[in-house]
């Protein structure tokens, strides 16, 4: 075949596409293996509890503080817009709905991806680079069952809890700014909120979203760590990829889930 510019460009394109698809397939098989070998992580639950500490508990501060500030900003901005139409009592609805439906799950997931996801990738990547995973394999212990699965499940469990804390904190922030600072009527702030926020439709759908996001982030994080080049550049590259890929995946998944859940409601 004559290797002129066009064929070479097409070849390059083709190789990139097949590489991506191959990697996606590999990642899917890796997820299957993780779920299949989860017996150890669930039976010896203290392994998973340890990882919940590192992913969940250590993310608490950033989640709570960001939640509070996001809620306070929502309170300020929401009030500014709503009072132009003379309906500032609807501030509670605005703050609560935007938090439980969207901002809570999505922003908490983005923070989680950069706080915990990157840490998971770096940790597993370093274990690979220093041959700890190989050593484990040589000791007849499957690293997927012993190292990957507990971290995966810890992420899946932590994420919804963090998202709910983010929403609760945000609503509290909105309350602080709206009611305590600006002086929106406290009664109508809460009662309007309660009248419009549905437990199943709004809150539970938000929780389901955060579950899905937790699974996506944990999956990407453990995969990038396990698959990275066992060198310093490999680990740092994988860590960056975890944050970028999972952030994009969260936003895409959020669009799909929102379209499925809140269509017509």
């Amino acid at each position: 075949m004559p290797a002129n510019g066009l064929t070479r460009a097409l070849q390059g394109l083709g190789r990139r596409v097949t590489d991506r698809i191959w990697r996606l397939g590999f990642a899917a098989r890796f997820l299957m293996a993780t779920v299949m070998y989860s017996g150890t992580a669930l039976r010896r639950f203290n392994l998973t509890i340890r990882e919940i500490y590192f992913t969940g508990v250590l993310s608490l501060i950033i989640i709570l503080v960001s939640g509070l500030f996001v809620g306070m900003v929502l309170g300020l901005q929401g009030y500014d817009t709503l009072q132009r139409y003379g309906s500032s009592e609807a501030l509670g609805i605005l703050v609560a709905l935007s938090l439980v439906r969207e901002l809570g799950p999505v922003v908490a997931a983005l923070l989680f991806a950069s706080r915990a996801g990157s840490a998971i990738t770096a940790e597993i990547g370093l274990m690979k680079a220093t041959e700890q995973l190989s050593a484990m394999e040589m000791m007849a212990v499957d690293p997927i069952a012993r190292v990957v699965a507990p971290r995966f499940w810890a992420g899946v469990i932590s994420m919804p809890l963090l998202a709910m804390l983010f929403s609760a904190m945000g609503i509290f922030g909105g309350y602080l700014v709206g009611v305590q600072l600006i002086g929106v009527d406290e009664g109508s702030f809460w009662s309007q909120m309660q009248a419009s926020v549905d437990f199943r439709e709004d809150i539970m759908n938000g929780v389901i979203k955060s579950f899905v996001f937790g699974a996506i982030i944990s999956w990407i994080a453990v995969f990038e760590g396990y698959d990275c080049e066992p060198t310093a550049e490999g680990v740092s590259g994988a860590t960056t990829r975890t944050v970028v890929t999972s952030s994009l995946a969260i936003l895409a998944a959020d669009f799909i889930l929102t379209a499925l859940m809140f269509r017509g409601a």
Binding site: A168, Q194, I203
Partner: peptide, 24 residues
């Protein structure tokens, strides 16, 4: 265990707050 227990407890408290105080 204590920290994780605390984390799960406040997470569930947040859900309760959302369900009862924020939601219907």
């Amino acid at each position: 265990d204590l920290w994780v227990g605390f984390f799960v407890a406040i997470g569930l408290a947040a859900l309760l707050f959302l369900a009862l105080k924020v939601g219907n």
